[in-house]
């Protein structure tokens, strides 16, 4: 197979990943690395480099729309980006020390956690109560648009959220993913932000987090232009198409399909990591 044929196939795979990721709201980044390593037999380091690039493209594209609509909490995002960028640099540094086998095993476990997380029901938090001292000092409380007009909300447990974000940054830098699942966990579960604010602020932060480790990977030679180019354009086109087609799709069934794909890839990554076939 020559460069042209391979690029077209990779573009198609990335397109499907971007489309599914956008339709399910889970992001396509998490299946790019398994797709490249398991299907196209690409070295996991090149796969992580290409995946990071695609993650920056889709998150920045989506964040552009959300931030304009006023869902994103820019102060919360900016504050937590301190934790995710330090984490991402830590992760990129650690990635240079451990063997690809270890990365494959961690990747498999993160895939399983993501699939499990998508099947869980979410609970919308009740507003009110005593304002949080740290959140007040950092002026994090804000509001977001709803059909009944602007809805005010309070932010809680900032140090806990900050700590989880550091872990999200490490995973992003180590595995080349956006780790949106962990970011939403920190904001939705720990900091009690409304779900829509959590997902959009997570998206807002993913580009910065991924850019922090992408710089390191560029200098280390992990970013192969021949591979990153079809992946980046494919995921971007898929994500744009998904955003347009979204109103016509039944998401629960798609989420189930996506979760199944993620579980299959998780076991494959774990198996290859354990047997050293990576």
């Amino acid at each position: 197979m020559n460069v042209l044929e391979l690029s077209v196939l990779i573009f198609g795979g990335a397109l499907a990943a971007g489309l599914l990721g956008s339709l399910t709201g889970l992001g396509g980044g998490i299946i790019i690395v398994p797709l490249l390593t398991l299907v196209f037999k690409v070295d996991i380091r090149y796969a992580i480099g290409a995946s990071l690039v695609s993650v920056i493209a889709t998150s920045s594209g989506a964040a552009a729309a959300y931030v304009k609509e006023g869902f994103t909490n820019v102060r919360v995002g900016m504050l937590l980006e301190v934790a995710t960028t330090v984490g991402a640099l830590t992760g990129a540094f650690v990635a240079g020390l451990v063997s690809p086998r270890v990365i494959a095993i961690i990747f498999g476990l993160v895939l399983l956690q993501s699939a499990w997380q998508t099947t869980r029901q979410r609970v919308e938090h009740v507003a009110g109560g005593v304002p949080d001292r740290v959140a007040t000092w950092l002026r994090l409380d804000s509001s977001y648009p709803t059909s009944d007009g602007p809805q005010h909300y309070q932010v809680r447990h900032v140090p806990l959220g900050f700590g989880i974000m550091y872990v999200a940054g490490i995973l992003s830098g180590l595995l080349g993913i956006g780790s949106g699942v962990v970011k939403v966990l920190a904001m939705d579960r720990a900091m009690r932000l409304p779900f829509k604010v959590s997902t959009t602020t997570s998206n807002f932060m993913i580009g910065v987090t991924a850019a922090a480790s992408a710089g390191v990977y560029l200098h280390r030679g992990y970013i192969d232009p021949g591979l990153a180019f079809p992946v980046m354009l494919g995921v971007l086109c898929g994500a744009l198409g998904g955003a347009r087609a979204l109103p016509n799709f039944k998401t629960p069934r798609l989420r189930l399909i996506f979760a199944t794909v993620v579980v299959v890839m998780a076991f494959e990554m774990l198996y290859n990591g354990i047997t050293g076939n990576i």
């Binding site: 020559n2 460069v3 042209l4 970013i223």
Partner: peptide, 27 residues
């Protein structure tokens, strides 16, 4: 860049299964 890359190197056979890093020009 990608279109130019395809017209120049499209018929080469790539091997991404072995990690070699990138030359200084690309890193």
């Amino acid at each position: 860049g990608g279109i130019a890359f395809m017209t120049h190197h499209g018929s080469l056979v790539p091997d991404h299964s072995v990690f070699r890093g990138q030359p200084a020009m690309l890193s």
